[in-house]
Lab assay of single mutants.
Amino acid sequence: GQVNVNNTTYTFPTPKLAKEFAQKAAKKYNLTVHVSGNTVTVK
């Protein structure tokens, strides 16, 4: 799974890890998680 945070893309071996990372990043920066297919964007 891929996660985009502040124009930086992070790649994870599983969608589960990507989702967990996205949720932590969203909480940390007070942003929202947007899911589109296999790509998760935090903005």
Rank of each mutant, 00 (worst) to 15 (best):
G1R: 11
G1F: 11
Q2D: 11
Q2V: 11
Q2H: 12
V3N: 12
V3C: 13
N4K: 12
N4I: 12
N4F: 09
N4D: 10
V5P: 11
V5Q: 12
V5Y: 10
N6W: 15
N6H: 15
N6A: 11
N7A: 14
T8L: 14
T8M: 12
T8V: 14
T8W: 15
T9W: 06
T9A: 05
T9K: 09
Y10W: 08
Y10V: 05
Y10E: 02
T11I: 13
T11K: 07
T11L: 07
T11H: 10
F12I: 00
F12A: 01
P13A: 12
P13G: 05
P13L: 08
T14L: 03
P15F: 10
K16G: 07
K16M: 08
K16V: 06
L17T: 04
L17K: 08
L17I: 07
L17F: 04
A18E: 00
K19A: 10
E20W: 14
E20A: 13
E20F: 07
E20I: 13
F21E: 01
F21W: 15
Q23E: 14
Q23H: 09
Q23W: 10
K24P: 00
K24N: 08
K24G: 04
A25T: 12
A25W: 15
A25I: 15
A25F: 15
A26N: 05
A26P: 02
A26Q: 11
K27V: 07
K27F: 07
K28N: 09
K28H: 10
K28T: 05
Y29E: 05
Y29P: 10
N30M: 06
N30D: 06
N30F: 08
L31H: 09
L31R: 04
L31S: 04
T32V: 13
T32P: 05
V33P: 03
V33M: 05
V33K: 00
H34W: 11
V35S: 02
V35F: 03
V35M: 04
S36R: 08
S36Y: 07
S36I: 12
G37K: 04
G37C: 02
G37I: 02
G37S: 03
G37W: 03
N38V: 08
N38Y: 03
T39I: 10
T39L: 06
V40G: 00
V40C: 00
V42W: 04
V42D: 00
V42S: 01
K43D: 08
K43Q: 14
K43P: 05
K43E: 14
K43S: 15
K43A: 11
